[in-house]
């Protein structure tokens, strides 16, 4: 790297960081005198809690992504994925259902799979069912709704169906991989996984280096998403939203909006969803439980770090409309 103004910025940034650590270790307790409104402390606490909770999942996600990058070749992946579009969507949804991921950890994994040549629609199927359908989510939903299987099973079943529909729609609309860069072929990256000459240890090292890069790529989006979600929690009143939600359609809109804004982990949202059972019809609650794991505010930002903005916007629209229509159809039967 050339020694230039940018590198001076770096040096001063590092200096600043070190000054910070000295400051923090020396005076951290005396700082509480700072006069900030209470709500800001709450905002900060909720923001950090989302991050601290999400970071291990993200780190595991980026590490798995690194492993895929280094250890799995494009050819191997091609063999596993069915040629037929529908079969590929179906398979990816099933694999997602078996894979116990959460919505933060899954984005880097999907990105890596797609750079390795997995078609976009298959990646999306995996992205949708991964966080929604897994044992922990099923069980926490079962618990939250008073040990009742109905909601838990509906959540899984209907969620799977919706993921299939979305995957299929995506397969008609998009052929290319929709990743952020201009380049669409990644064949040159084959070198990473093919080089049999490397020792296992070297490969592990590279895997972790990849994980670092991936973390810095995605970290900032996670942080912005988490901050916005906590802002909503502190400053936007749920009561206000709830008061809008009279009637079937409006209540579904409100619950889906809440799921989007609150950006809860799919393993924890059931308890929040359950607290609305008296206010809203069951179908709206189901909308909350299915829509939230598929897409939310925090997740949108993470997807923006990976996919083209246009694709993310269209994707969010497709998910929203599909979930809305499917739940409304269900409402007719309930």
């Amino acid at each position: 790297m050339k020694k230039s103004i940018p590198s001076m910025i770096i040096d001063s940034a590092i200096l600043l960081l070190f000054m910070m650590v000295i400051y923090v270790s020396g005076f951290s307790d005396t700082l509480s005198f700072m006069e900030l409104p209470d709500s800001f402390y709450h905002l900060n606490t909720i923001f950090l809690s989302i991050l601290i909770e999400a970071l291990p999942f993200v780190l595991i996600g980026v590490t798995i992504a690194g492993i895929i990058q280094i250890f799995i070749t494009e050819d191997q992946l091609k063999k596993w994925i069915p040629k037929n579009k529908y079969a590929a969507v179906f398979m990816s949804c099933v694999v997602g259902g078996l894979f116990p991921a959460c919505e933060c950890g899954i984005v880097p994994i999907v990105r890596r799979l797609i750079t390795k040549g997995v078609p976009i629609y298959a990646g999306i199927g995996f992205l949708l069912t991964g966080p929604l359908i897994n044992p922990i989510v099923i069980f926490s939903t079962y618990m939250a709704f008073g040990n009742d299987w109905q909601i838990a099973l509906l959540r899984m079943g209907l969620g799977f169906l919706i993921a299939l529909v979305i995957g299929t729609i995506i397969s008609f609309l998009f052929q290319s991989n929709q990743l952020k860069t201009r380049a669409t072929t990644v064949s040159s990256c084959q070198a990473d996984a093919d080089s049999g000459s490397q020792s296992f240890l070297e490969k592990v090292g590279k895997t972790l280096i990849h994980a670092v890069d991936e973390f810095f790529d995605m970290g900032k989006y996670l942080i912005i998403g988490a901050f916005l979600a906590s802002f909503v929690q502190v400053y936007v009143s749920t009561n206000l939203l709830v008061s809008i939600g009279e009637g079937h359609v409006a209540s579904l809109v409100v619950m889906m909006g809440l799921a989007y804004l609150l950006s809860l982990c799919s393993e924890a949202d059931a308890f929040i969803g359950a607290s609305f059972t008296n206010i809203f019809p069951q179908a709206s609650i189901l909308g909350f439980l299915i829509y939230g794991p598929m897409i939310d505010l925090k997740n949108t930002f993470m997807m923006l770090s990976v996919f083209k903005t246009r694709f993310v916007l269209i994707f969010v629209a497709i998910v929203t409309v599909t979930v809305f229509i499917m739940i409304s159809l269900l409402q007719g039967f309930m």
Binding site: Y41, H42, F47, I223, T238, V242, S275, N278
Partner: peptide, 29 residues
């Protein structure tokens, strides 16, 4: 880089609060 460093800064400088009634009001119901 500033965005990524942000949570470390607020996390180390600001005390953590316990949620209270004002948050409960927002969550409602």
């Amino acid at each position: 880089y500033l965005v990524i460093a942000f949570p470390i800064v607020t996390g180390m400088l600001l005390p953590l609060s316990s949620l209270d009634a004002s948050i409960a009001k927002n969550k409602g119901s």
